[in-house]
């Protein structure tokens, strides 16, 4: 057989191989379409929720609702027959005070726990602590609410000699303990992401453990720590059941931690079942929903800007 004929046959078999799609190609296509569908569906769901909540609430919010009264009045009387008023100032301060106290409780606890797990604990201790923290994060919120009602309530009454134990203090502590595990997990991930070479370099220069953590590790992890804290804030704003059970659910602008308050989320949960679809009360509850949505969106936006702003320097 002449050499050039052999060459032709060889190149034609390569050409066939180059132009035949194998099984892998089809699998690859199917997987990428599936992943694409999954990604898009998440966006569609979020837009869908937003559209639905807005549609139910926006007509009322832009139509018959007095926006000035909505934001500045403390009178929330949606069920009054003669003169219903829809002021959410007390609800806003309720949510803000509970969330604020919850942050005071959870930030030091979760950062402390994260620093201990990431920097000091080792081996068994570390692993069992991580499992335990994740277990804590999985406790349902109604259980936390129950703890607030049946354990914290009498405890607060006895300790501080106050008539009611369902208050900002109770809900704030419960919410703080509830948010701390997930904040710990995220903060710990952020600390673990700081390369060990930084720690070794700093320690090799004679820095103590404490100096290494404060001057090198925490600054290097600040993006992730910020994300953890904002996640906790978001959790505080959005939490419903535990706050409903522990806060006393009384419309009130708190002047001390022992005052009962009512949160925005708890109001929606408690009242939506009793409203007629399309009524003003129904509409105002959805307006509250839009309001929560906007707040969460702003928090996320701030988180994004903070993280990117810090990231840019790198």
């Amino acid at each position: 057989m002449p050499a050039d004929v052999q060459g032709d046959r060889l190149s034609s078999s390569i050409a066939t191989e180059l132009n035949t799609r194998g099984w892998d190609w089809y699998v690859d296509r199917v997987v990428s379409i599936g992943v694409f569908a999954g990604g898009v569906s998440a966006i569609i769901f979020i837009i869908g929720i937003f559209v639905f909540v807005t549609r139910e609430g926006l007509d009322f919010a832009l139509g018959s609702l007095d926006l000035k009264e909505f934001f500045t009045s403390i009178n929330w009387r949606p069920t009054s027959e003669r003169n219903p008023t829809y002021g959410i100032l007390a609800l806003m301060t309720g949510t803000a005070s509970v969330t604020g106290l919850a942050m005071l409780v959870s930030v030091p606890f979760s950062l402390g726990a994260a620093i201990y797990i990431a920097e000091f604990a080792s081996g068994r201790t570390r692993e069992s602590l991580k499992v335990l923290v994740e277990l804590l994060a999985a406790i349902p919120s109604v259980v936390w609410g129950f703890i607030g009602m049946s354990i914290m309530n009498p405890l607060i009454i006895e300790m501080f000699d106050v008539p009611v134990g369902l208050s900002v203090l109770n809900a704030g502590v419960i919410l703080g303990l509830m948010a701390a595990p997930i904040m710990t997990t995220i903060a710990e991930d952020a600390l673990k992401a700081v390369p060990d070479s930084y720690r070794e370099a700093a320690e090799a220069m004679g820095a103590t453990r404490w100096q290494v953590i404060f001057r090198v590790v925490l600054p290097a992890a600040k993006n992730g720590l910020m994300a953890a804290i904002l996640l906790g804030v978001g959790r505080g704003f959005g939490e419903t059941m535990a706050v409903l059970m522990a806060s006393g659910h009384a419309i009130n602008i708190p002047t001390s931690p022992f005052d009962s308050v009512r949160a925005i989320t708890a109001t929606i949960a408690a009242e939506l079942g009793d409203t007629a679809r399309g009524s003003d009360h129904y509409g105002v509850l959805f307006t509250l929903g839009i309001f929560l949505f906007v707040i969460t969106f702003i928090i996320n936006l701030i988180a994004d800007v903070v993280v990117k702003g810090v990231g840019r320097q790198k």
């Binding site: 390369p195 070479s197 930084y198 070794e200 370099a201 700093a202 090799a204 090198v216 600054p219 290097a220 790198k314």
Partner: peptide, 8 residues
């Protein structure tokens, strides 16, 4: 160290 470690 062998690989430079610029602290952040």
């Amino acid at each position: 160290f062998p690989l430079p470690v610029g602290l952040p």
